[in-house]
Amino acid sequence: MTDTLLQARGLSKHFGGLKAVDQVDLDIHTGEILGLLGPNGAGKTVFFNLISGVYRPTSGTVHFQGKRIDGLPSHRVAACGVGRTFQIVKPFASLTVLENVLVARGITRYGTFRRLWGPWQSKSETRAAMKILERVGMAELAERKAGLLPLGNLRRLEIARALVVGHQLILLDESFSGLRHEEISQLETLIRRIRDDGITVLLIEHNMRVTMGLCDRIVVLDHGRKIAQGKPQDIQENDLVIEAYLGSRGGRHAA
């Protein structure tokens, strides 16, 4: 029996008449890399936003380590140990790479009003932040302005920030898109290492090869509904999934 880290039940988000996410049940098991797959507009990012507190669900519940987190504002979800990246990379451009990580380190300290007046540049803080940067292989870029980094490094920086916040679970929103071949394989190694360090990973990915190779389990969404879940090879052979991606077989063959 595997441990469930995050449990979503009947999770829905409707925007007017559009059911962006509709009655989705999903379990994330501790220590796995779970892939969230689906064609454009399937509701993957909305689902992320529901878990991370950006949106309040229309209905349904989310439990994280047994604690109910749906409807909490995103800074509170983050404080529970859920870190995330964004589909469009958004570093704090005018801060250095190190400062970007230090902002995230603040999560351990933003809690009380009094602590807000404390210093942020202590030696132990900087050391801890550098350790994270070493983990994602960016230590030598620590003093660079984040706004000047190329995309591959920005993606790593986002993961670094997410790691600081998400000491339990990190949500990666299309971290591979737009990357070159060798950058993709480096990032795959990094994500595997993160998982081996005991952090659970939920990732949205378009690149089939990456998803199939990297994920332990895959959940497929289409039009806001969960249409399949299972091991990568099962998903590859699932008729519903093939239909969602390629259109129904009969129709195409006739043409």
Partner: peptide, 27 residues
Amino acid sequence: TKTELGLAMRATSQDIPIADAMGINSH
């Protein structure tokens, strides 16, 4: 420049959703 609040303010001024995702109560 020196306090946690200052850093949180700089982060908030750049991007509110991201600051939230970093655990900052931006409001």
